[in-house]
Amino acid sequence: MRSVLSGVLTGIGTAAFIDETVFHQLLHWHHFYDKSTTDVGLVSDGLFHAGSWLAMVAGLVLYADVRRRGTLVPRKWWSGLCLGLGGFQLYDGTFQHKGLGIHQIRYGVDLAPYDWTWNGIAVLLLVAGALLLVRASRRPPRAASRTEPRTPSRTR
């Protein structure tokens, strides 16, 4: 279960990071603040912005911990990653962009294809994540990943 959680958290952090670097900083498609944002929108944006950094840190440190314990199930981790990525992008694309009007994907163009692509990719990621999770749960995990927790070599 920790494998999935670690993947989801890392996924959310990665999606937010890609959003910030690629769309805000490199392409300048998104606007920092387009002044049509509602107060609720600002709070939601702030919460997700602050939360996604924490999710990234928590996801990575959880990954390190699961690995150390020898209980990492890679397939579950990847499914979590897809779920986190897709979940964040769908939330961002529907609720934040449309529902709260924080900002749009791009300005001065017909938005429809952008919105469909954005949310379509999100749904595909979610489906992929769900399928991976179902397959990982159905198939018994490889023997190596469910043995005794590895005791760290450093003993004091």
Partner: peptide, 21 residues
């Protein structure tokens, strides 16, 4: 500590963005 960091980060980000306008 995680909850406080999340709340504080949110308060900071919201205040920063509101100063833009």
């Amino acid at each position: 500590r995680a909850a406080v960091l999340l709340t504080a980060g949110t308060a900071h980000a919201v205040l920063a963005k509101s100063l833009y306008a």
